[in-house]
């Protein structure tokens, strides 16, 4: 159409320009880290266009020999197990919150949310004292339990909103067929809420994967996680930017495919959550 032609195209172009600018903001820092990771120490401080071919894999080799791969594995194990346990405990709880008429439901949900509010700085000292007493410092169970304080509320909260959208009739018909409530949950409700389950698990995993503070305080040599291990590339004489960049990539890369696959599920499940 004629009246669309110029003004419309100008608007469209400015919209696309805006989106490109946003994309640049999102992506350029990542590109910068890639460059940083490939630069030898002697060329770190000169612009890439002055010596574009001065690249090396030394930083990657160096990090393979450090304690970092072990830390990466620790991160995976602890965040992963904490997420699985939180799902096992949290999904039924969310179901109960969403579908029951229990008294004190609101209080229970608030208590769960409160945990997410607690500033780790205050929380970690008593936690540390308990852990010392129980011999949990620098152990996997200790770190996993600490991570569950992060993941469990998140799982319960996001599953709650997901379950709220499951029509009651679906549950009732399952119960009519003689299934117990637990069976109905496992066989009927969870499959119906699959995108939400995936989304909750991924968001829970990410929040534990992201943790710095708990690991800083309650791990030592053997269970140290990747985010803390990165800080070990800062010595009291120098900062090993190359290794830091490689470590940042290593700690991000495993998450990206997960995010891409999960993207669909997260949007699907959340779209119900916010529609109300």
């Amino acid at each position: 159409m004629d009246d669309k032609s110029f003004a419309y195209r100008a608007k469209k172009a400015s919209g696309i320009a805006m989106m490109l600018a946003f994309l640049a903001f999102a992506v350029l820092p990542i590109l910068w880290v890639l460059i940083l990771s490939l630069r030898p120490a002697t060329a770190l401080f000169e612009p890439i266009w002055e010596s574009p071919t001065n690249l090396t894999f030394d930083n990657f080799r160096g990090i393979a020999d450090s304690g970092f791969p072990r830390a990466l594995l620790n991160s995976f194990l602890t965040a992963g197990i904490a997420t699985i346990l939180s799902m096992i405990v949290g999904v039924p709880a969310a179901f109960a919150l969403a579908k029951s008429r229990l008294r004190g439901k609101f209080v229970a949900s608030w208590v769960l949310l409160l945990l997410r509010m607690a500033p780790p700085v205050g929380f970690v000292i008593p936690l540390f004292l308990i852990y010392i007493n129980a011999g949990l410092i620098d152990t996997y169970p200790g770190l996993i339990m600490a991570y569950m304080t992060l993941t469990l509320p998140l799982v319960v909260w996001s599953m709650w909103t997901t379950f709220a959208q499951i029509p009651n009739e679906l549950i009732e018909s399952a119960l009519m067929d003689g299934a117990s409530l637990a069976k109905a949950l496992v066989l009927v409700v969870i499959p119906a809420a699959r995108p939400g389950v995936v989304a909750a698990a991924i968001l829970g995993f990410l929040i534990a994967w992201n943790d710095f503070f708990f690991a800083l305080i309650i791990t030592r040599g053997s269970t140290v996680t990747a985010p803390v291990s990165i800080m070990n590339f800062i010595s009291s004489d120098s900062v090993d930017w190359g290794s830091i960049a490689v470590a940042a990539i290593c700690v991000t890369l495993p998450i990206i495919p997960v995010m891409v696959i999960a993207n669909r599920y997260i949007v699907q499940s959340l779209s119900g959550a916010v529609k109300g």
Partner: peptide, 25 residues
């Protein structure tokens, strides 16, 4: 000897509580 060498920031955040715990670790 298990020698654990950590960044200075990490060390400073951990050391006081480690001592306080007195676990002999």
């Amino acid at each position: 000897a298990n020698v654990d060498v950590v960044g200075q920031d990490v060390f400073e955040s951990r050391i006081n509580l480690t001592f306080t715990g007195g676990t002999g670790e």
